[in-house]
């Protein structure tokens, strides 16, 4: 059974991500946000379900679509929005933007948009943990598109050879930018790629946070018991575009995903599904649910104001942080 505390935390975390993403939509359309933003709306259950089983000491690496991973693993809302706006108060001081959110102080070692690039990095963080025998585990978040890169397979092999404590988390949202999965892979079988490397591999509904949590707990336990690595494939869907809000959501780019498909997945909204569960199980009354929503909305709005009030980096500081002195 899930504790009330856990359920409420997971619900709030998912809401924070959703509201943070959706508050960016208008500024993106207006051109106030110019930095490329890959919204995570629709995939919240994966980040939150995994994050709920991790300890603060554990290591997490993200990708181009990592606002959610960052927020769940210790990144601040203010730091996120300010970073997207290119402000000095951003989590990367305005040097990284949306695709390089980081909170290394909390174990979220960073994100990067070179597809699959961070899979090897996360493997290295797990290697560090295994050399030190410090009980940490590492998590690598990547999309279905990343399974087209060689470094994914190199990392699976090396991690398995050394029995590294790493969870490879594929968030299969069915599209690699514009390319549907069936145009990228000969078979819809990402979960099977762990098998030749002798890696325990599981596929699960990525829009059900409780199922994600259960599987994450199992994977983390395997890793902590020295039985890693583990490969998890979560079937999910991004409600927004590859980059920015569009591709058949706002209606201005209707060429990428079939409207019917988008509608079907909208019906599987992971937050709505969890809300129904919470009400059914009487964890929340409707009024409490609404209160939580407005409280999160307020916090996100405050972060927006914080970002807006923050200063840009000073031009004379262009050359800062190239090398550590």
């Amino acid at each position: 059974m899930y504790s009330k505390h856990l359920l409420k935390k997971m619900y709030t975390d998912m809401l924070v991500i959703r509201y943070a993403e959706e508050i960016l939509v208008e500024p993106i359309i207006k051109g106030e946000v110019k930095c490329p933003v890959h919204l995570y709306s629709g995939q919240e259950a994966v980040a939150v379900g995994i994050g709920a089983v991790l300890a603060r000491k554990d290591y997490v690496f993200g990708n181009h679509r990592s606002h959610g991973h960052y927020l769940v693993h210790g990144g601040t809302l203010k730091g996120l929005i300010a970073e997207i706006y290119g402000k000095e108060t951003g989590c990367a001081k305005g040097r990284g933007g949306s695709m390089h959110v980081c909170a290394p102080e909390a174990g979220f070692l960073g994100a990067a948009p070179i597809v699959a690039g961070t899979i090897a990095l996360a493997t290295g963080a797990a290697l560090a943990a295994s050399i030190r025998k410090d009980g940490r585990i590492a998590v690598s978040f990547f999309g279905d598109g990343a399974t087209g890169e060689g470094t994914f397979y190199e990392s699976l092999n090396f991690a398995s050879l050394r029995k590294l404590p790493i969870i490879f988390v594929c968030e299969n949202n069915l599209y690699a930018t514009h390319m549907p999965l069936q145009d990228c892979r000969a078979a819809n079988n990402i979960v099977a790629t762990g098998k030749p490397f002798c890696i325990p591999s599981f596929r699960e509904d990525g829009n059900d946070v409780l199922k994600v949590y259960d599987l994450a707990a199992k994977a983390a336990a395997l890793c902590r018991a020295g039985k890693g690595p583990v490969l998890l494939e979560f079937m999910t869907y991004r409600m927004r575009g590859h980059v920015g809000p569009d591709d058949n959501v706002q209606g201005c780019r209707t060429d990428i995903r079939p409207a019917r498909e988008v509608a079907i997945w909208k019906g599987k909204d992971p937050i709505e599904a969890l809300e129904k569960y919470l009400l059914r199980r009487k964890i929340y009354r409707l009024i409490e649910l609404k209160q939580t929503r407005s409280s999160v909305a307020r916090t996100v709005k405050e972060a927006m104001e914080f970002a807006s009030d923050s200063k840009y980096p000073a031009p004379e500081e262009l050359g800062y942080y190239v090398s550590k002195k």
Binding site: Y59, I119, A120, L121, T123, G124, G150, E154
Partner: peptide, 14 residues
Amino acid sequence: NGITGAAVGAALAG
């Protein structure tokens, strides 16, 4: 590629 990436990740992890 994978091994050098792992070295980078290990460096980031201390």
